[in-house]
Nucleic acid binder design. Structure first.
Length: 830
RNA sequence: GCCGGAGUGGCGGAACGGGAGACGCAGGGGACUUAAAAUCCUCCGCCUUCGGGCGUGCGGGUUCGAAUCCCGCCUCCGGCACCA
């Protein structure tokens, strides 16, 4: 049926039709046994929260789908799988608040989210779907854990850890932001608990060095990881301490200031402290102080402006450089889990030590002295970390602070056996224990006779019991489930107690991209052969919020799997793209902020899809702005893309109004080729927004050609088909429909992406800008092939240019062929 | 405090060191219509004596030529923040 020009297309029927057809034809399914021209693209898998997806979420998925469709049309065997990061606290909280079981709640949410993806017209290879909360998946978390346990990469230790009172569980360092729980925002407390850790610090150097080989990552993310790993070079120095019975080891980045070390400071948690306090006359007072510091939340102990407190332990050590005895203190500003948990204090050259020394009347000794600075320690008003020359240190005198001085001192320490060069990292081991139900059970049992015993592989998976009571009381519900806790020791057969901690959900997401390649394999974690052919992931897409967390853990676990011989690569995601977030004004906060349910500024895609179609939302979302930037949603601006698609539909309906033959319009053909070039280049660089602009320009030219009957029907039809193909990644439904109505039987996905012809891009005549002294004065036309001299002549021949040259002498003429002529004058001779 | 990133019309944004503002939204004018919607055409940075002048956060610099490169500021956003 050929409606008159005003008709609008039935997006509801068309979108439903194509969604059904794509699904029925299983268009996105990939047989991974064939890896020729493979392209593994991946969106960070989502947490199936109960909240419906809003248009802000859509950005991520729509962008991925556009990329996927483009790759397919370019002839790549693109794999685009999807799954569910489905363990985690919200499910358990829903159980507590609403009485629905986490498992049922989660599976229902997954069902709803899948529907939403479908309505957006997004294609995933659902045959690869994985759900991390299912035993088929999490048994392999347990398997990885056991392998790490065997190699000492998983271990248990008692430590001061971050405890979120609201989530009722401990958190990893990475999951604490400004002293608060990253998930819920509650203030984090300090607790001393026995917990499971993964030895990511063993991989610190490799994780850091690997960043240099990731040109496909945003610099920002690499920088954040570098800072997080926090590599420092310096030295470990031993201070003999006869009265203590053993030497005190410290880490310092400034061994060149050793002569100025006037006291040592231990962290209150330092292993030597207990012995020293035991013999101290004021031991009770000190013990009470230590207990208080240890229970202080990190943010208060380490945060800005936290007061420096400390106590003299009454013991002494010998400064190896000077041979002088110096006192040993404990203080809250020395952290137990960095370096050796002890420092040498050099108050003259370190601001923290300076403040502490002044507050407690401890001696200060200058090592570096600047001619324009204080000449004695008494004159100091603040530490001078990096000025002056060494004075009064024998052979070292005259050295300036810097690498050379450090190297000289390290050599000297090593020669004397007092210490050695050392590298230290800010990164801490990954705490994976969680005191919650809805996670992967850690597969070990505790036997009175044998101690901690790993669950044997053939007893995996350790399943989560379903019949658990969710009360919201503190303590893991698993620990109250007698049947779960009761176990048999795999080693001696005696009664044993099962571990009730579950794993951090970041374990699930640290290797899931490999499981997509062997999602149903019941025998092994994944097929290494397939993994090595398809992975690493060619393009990874997700939000910047995982710059450290997920992306660091995944890089770590990839290296572990590499060392296990399971994969041949060390970087899981050589190319990373962070899409920006969508923001909108929030009535609640009065500001433009990230779209989120809690801020009450979300926009539901449902009414948009109902009224204007998913294609409109898709085009708009991609047109909104550069995909890596934060962009503000506007309900009004949706009209533009909607009109664009309507125009396309009407244009397709009246394309045969163009005159049958005879008319030649090189402009239309040129515009067509230019659009192909621009869209292709833009998509290769993820510039979806400018690609849409290029398509809008093409439709403008084509509409005019049809309207003015200035091009042949054949040329118009060709331009239309090109437009439909180029637009398909953005608006898949309407383009498929037009394509089919034009007599094509295969899906656009299987059509070949158009190619442009450079020779068609050229124009016979070009407009050249003429400037006088850099100011635009005229535009002239020249042959595309015109020489520099031709440009010059035409430019100088322009009447307007001559007017501006009156009374001036031409000094030089700059010619940029085909673009610009700049006539430079010497100015008026006066 | 340290380290990044960003500031362009009323708005979203575009611009290999070479025409500032592509494309779109909003707005003005017109056509069609009994009317409205839709659609189509057209205008749309500021000032102007209509020659032109001024314009990409501010001030300098490099260059024939700077939104783009360099230096110094301002503002906003992000990361880290007693890590010895």
């Amino acid at each position: 049926m050929r409606g008159r020009a005003m008709s609008s297309y039935d997006h509801r029927a068309i979108e439903a039709k194509w969604q059904e057809r794509w699904e029925r034809q299983r268009l996105a399914e990939v047989d991974v046994r064939v890896a020729k021209s493979k392209y593994y693209m991946l969106m960070m898998f989502p947490y199936p929260s109960g909240d419906r997806l809003h248009v802000g979420h859509g950005r991520n998925y729509i962008l991925g789908d556009a990329l996927y469709r483009y790759l397919r049309m370019r002839g790549r065997r693109a794999l685009n799988p999807m799954g569910w990061d489905s363990f985690g606290l919200p499910a358990e909280n829903a159980a507590i608040q609403r009485g629905v079981h986490p498992r049922d709640w989660t599976l229902e949410n997954i069902r709803v989210m899948k529907q939403q993806f479908r309505r957006w017209g997004i294609l995933y290879d659902w045959s690869k779907e994985i759900t991390s909360c299912q035993p088929e998946y999490f048994r392999w978390n347990q398997w990885i854990f056991l392998r790490m346990l065997e190699r000492g990469l998983a271990y248990r230790k008692r430590a001061g850890v971050n405890w979120c009172p609201s989530c009722r569980t401990v958190l990893a360092n990475e999951q604490v932001s400004e002293g608060s729980c990253e998930r819920c925002g509650s203030g984090v407390e300090q607790r001393d608990l026995e917990q499971w850790f993964l030895r990511i610090t063993d991989y610190a150097e490799r994780l850091l060095a690997g960043l240099d080989d990731l040109p496909g990552w945003p610099e920002k993310v690499k920088l954040m990881q570098r800072n997080w790993i926090g590599r420092s070079t310096g030295a470990e120095i031993s201070f003999a301490a006869p009265s203590v019975g053993e030497a005190v080891r410290v880490f310092t980045t400034r061994p060149d200031t050793l002569h100025g070390a006037t006291f040592l400071v231990l962290a209150p948690e330092h292993p030597l402290v207990e012995g020293l306090v035991a013999g101290h006359p004021r031991r009770e007072e000190i013990a009470a102080w230590i207990a208080r510091v240890r229970n202080t939340p990190r943010i208060l102990r380490e945060g800005e402006g936290a007061p420096k407190e400390g106590l003299d332990l009454g013991a002494q050590a010998l400064n190896p450089a000077t041979g002088e005895p110096i006192p040993i203190w404990i203080a809250n500003y020395v952290l137990p889990d960095y370096g050796t948990g002890a420092i040498m204090a050099v108050p003259a050259h370190d601001q923290r030590d300076f403040e502490f020394a002044r507050a407690h009347g401890l001696p200060i000794r200058l090592v570096y002295v600047a001619p324009d600075g204080p000449q004695t320690a008494a004159e100091l008003t603040e530490a001078i970390p990096d000025r002056g020359r060494i004075r009064g240190c024998g052979d070292f005198d005259g050295l300036e602070p810097g690498e050379e001085a450090v190297a000289r001192f390290v050599g000297w320490l090593e020669a004397n056996g007092w210490g050695r060069g050392q590298v230290s990292y800010r990164l801490r081991d990954w705490l994976i224990s969680r005191q919650r139900y809805w996670g992967t059970p850690i597969p070990v049992v505790y036997c009175d006779a044998c101690g901690m015993v790993p669950v044997p592989d053939d007893e995996l998976p350790v399943l989560l019991p379903y019949d658990v009571e969710f009360t919201g009381r503190e303590g893991n519900p698993l620990a109250r489930h007698e049947e779960f806790v009761r176990a048999t020791c795999p080693r001696c057969g005696a009664a044993a107690r099962r571990e009730t901690d579950t794993m951090d959900t970041f374990v699930d997401s640290s290797w899931y991209y490999l499981r997509y390649l062997s999602p149903r394999d019941g025998q092994r974690i994944f097929d290494s052969e397939v993994a090595n052919r398809w992975a690493p992931v060619d393009q990874y897409i997700g939000g910047i919020e995982h710059a450290i967390l997920h992306l660091l853990y995944a890089r770590f676990v990839c290296r572990v799997l590499h060392d296990f011989g399971l994969v041949g690569f060390e970087e899981p995601f050589p190319n990373l793209f962070n899409q920006g977030m969508i923001t909108r004004f929030s009535e609640r906060t009065g500001r433009v902020e990230k779209m989120s349910k809690s801020r009450g500024n979300t926009v539901s895609p449902d009414p948009i899809i109902d009224e204007m179609g998913a294609d409109t939302e898709r085009v708009y979302t991609l047109f909104l702005g550069p995909p890596e930037a934060e962009v503000e949603w506007s309900d009004e601006a949706l009209a533009g893309p909607h009109r664009f698609l309507q125009r396309l539909w009407r244009l397709a309906e009246r394309i045969d109004e163009a005159p049958p033959t005879g008319v030649v319009d090189p402009e239309l053909e040129r515009a067509r080729h230019e659009a192909i070039q621009r869209v292709t280049r833009d998509l290769d660089r993820f510039k979806f927004n400018t690609a849409v602009s290029a398509l809008m320009e093409l439709i403008n030219v084509l509409s005019r050609a049809v309207e003015e009957r200035s091009a042949s029907k054949l040329a118009c039809e060709q331009a239309l088909e090109t437009l439909v193909q180029l637009l398909h990644p953005f608006a898949p439904h309407v383009t498929e429909e037009i394509w089919e109505r034009r007599g094509h039987s295969e899906s656009l996905l299987e059509s070949d992406w158009p190619a442009w012809d450079e020779s068609r891009l050229r124009r016979a005549r070009v407009t050249v800008v003429v400037q006088v002294d850099g100011k635009l004065r005229d535009r002239v036309e020249v042959d595309a092939e015109a020489s520099e001299r031709d440009h010059r002549e035409v430019a100088l021949g322009s009447a307007r240019v001559r007017e501006h040259l009156a009374g001036r002498e031409v000094a030089r003429v700059v010619v940029v062929p085909g673009r610009l002529v700049n006539v430079v004058t010497r100015g008026v001779a006066s």
